[in-house]
Amino acid sequence: MSRLRVYADDNPGTPIVQLGDPVRIAMELSAIGVRFERWDAPVVPPRDAAEAEVLEAYRPYLDQLMGETGAGSADVLRVGPQTQGWAQARGKYLSEHTHSEDEVRFFVHGQGDFILHVNGRVYDVRCTAGDLISVPAGIPHWFDGGETPDFVTLRIFTNPDGWIAQYTGSDIAVRFPAEA
């Protein structure tokens, strides 16, 4: 189930806001420029479907989104408990960073947390299957797929080089781990 918890960035123990309704989550996040929405595909491809099948299932959404954002490519990221190199990759995602382009993800299966640090607040967004999140360029954030991840996402890129992070050097991600 999708959810949002918002904290003051000096108080990781007590949420200021807790939401579980996707419409209310979208409204709260839109106030900081983050896009959040639910997609209902006519057919959800199996977890192990080929990349082309996953992309085709969501083609109408992707075409519209890529047209709106000017994105040039989309791919499928599949991460599970047996994914080699996950521990190392997780470490780089868990450090607060920004990007020079929007970070756009759609969750086909599984879940993960995008944690955003904006205007003295920390927004922990639990994204689940059917959720789209678009974190605008320049917003400090981190991502946690968990110690034993199990998710399939669509990734949309404008930059042909893909995912490139600029790390902030802050330790805030250590103080605000994703909540279970």
Rank of each mutant, 00 (worst) to 15 (best):
A180V: 12
V34I: 05
L29N: 01
R3P: 10
I115E: 11
H109R: 08
G20F: 03
P60W: 08
G67F: 02
G112R: 07
D102L: 09
A50F: 05
R105K: 08
C127T: 09
V79G: 12
A26G: 02
V108D: 12
L94S: 04
R126H: 14
L65T: 04
W86V: 13
T158P: 02
R59V: 01
P15Y: 03
L4W: 02
L62C: 03
G110T: 08
R24D: 14
H117P: 01
W142E: 08
R78C: 06
A178P: 01
D10M: 10
D75H: 05
G145V: 03
L4D: 04
F143W: 14
G91Q: 15
P46L: 04
Q84W: 09
P45T: 02
A180E: 15
G80D: 15
Q166P: 11
R24W: 03
L116E: 01
E56Q: 13
D40W: 11
L55K: 08
V108C: 09
D40C: 12
G85T: 10
R59M: 08
L77F: 11
L65A: 05
W142P: 10
D75N: 14
D144I: 02
R47P: 03
V44A: 10
Q166S: 15
H97S: 06
E37S: 06
A87W: 07
A52V: 07
P177A: 04
H141G: 10
R78E: 12
T158S: 15
A74D: 13
A165C: 15
A52K: 07
E96M: 13
I164A: 11
Q111T: 09
R175S: 09
D75T: 07
V122Y: 00
F114Q: 09
T98L: 10
V135C: 11
D75P: 06
I115N: 01
E101F: 02
G112E: 09
E147T: 10
L132E: 00
F106D: 00
T168R: 01
W142N: 12
R175D: 13
F143D: 14
A74C: 12
V79I: 14
I164M: 06
M27G: 11
V125T: 06
L154H: 04
Y61A: 04
P177W: 05
K92W: 12
Q111L: 11
D113A: 07
T128R: 05
D10P: 06
P140K: 04
R155E: 07
R3W: 14
N159T: 13
A50L: 09
V108W: 09
F106Q: 00
L77G: 13
I164E: 11
I172T: 06
A31P: 09
R24H: 12
P160L: 05
R105A: 00
G85N: 10
R126Q: 14
V6R: 00
V122D: 00
G13N: 14
F157T: 05
V76Q: 03
V23M: 10
E147I: 09
A50E: 14
Q88S: 11
V54G: 01
F36M: 01
A52Q: 07
D131L: 01
R90A: 15
G146S: 09
M1Y: 09
P22Y: 05
V174D: 12
G85K: 06
F107R: 07
L4H: 02
G70Q: 05
A173D: 06
G72K: 13
G67Y: 02
G91I: 11
P12S: 08
G33N: 12
D131N: 05
L62S: 00
I164N: 13
